[in-house]
Amino acid sequence: MGFWSSFWDIIWWFVWAFAFIAYLFALFAIIGDLFRDRKLNGWWKAVWILFLIFVPFLTALVYLIARGSGMAERGAAEARQAKDATDAYIQQVAGSSAADEIAKAKALLDSGAITAEDYAQLKAKALS
Rank of each mutant, 00 (worst) to 15 (best):
M1T: 15
M1G: 15
G2F: 13
S5N: 08
S6Y: 08
F7A: 14
I10D: 02
I10M: 07
W13S: 03
W16A: 10
A17Y: 08
F20I: 01
F20K: 06
A26R: 08
F28G: 01
A29F: 03
D33A: 04
D33R: 04
L34I: 01
R38A: 08
W43I: 05
W43D: 08
W44L: 08
A46F: 15
V47M: 11
W48N: 02
L50P: 02
L50Y: 08
L50I: 00
V55Q: 06
F57Y: 14
T59Q: 11
T59Y: 13
L61N: 05
Y63I: 10
A66G: 09
A66T: 05
A66P: 02
R67S: 10
R67A: 12
S69L: 04
G70C: 03
G70H: 01
E73Y: 14
R74M: 04
R74N: 08
A76Y: 04
R80D: 04
K83H: 04
T86E: 10
Q91M: 14
Q92E: 12
Q92K: 15
V93H: 08
G95M: 13
S97R: 01
A98D: 12
A99D: 12
I102C: 06
A103I: 01
K104R: 15
A105H: 09
S111L: 05
A113F: 14
A113L: 04
A116N: 05
D118H: 10
Y119N: 05
Q121P: 01
L122S: 14
K123F: 04
A124W: 04
K125F: 02
A126S: 11
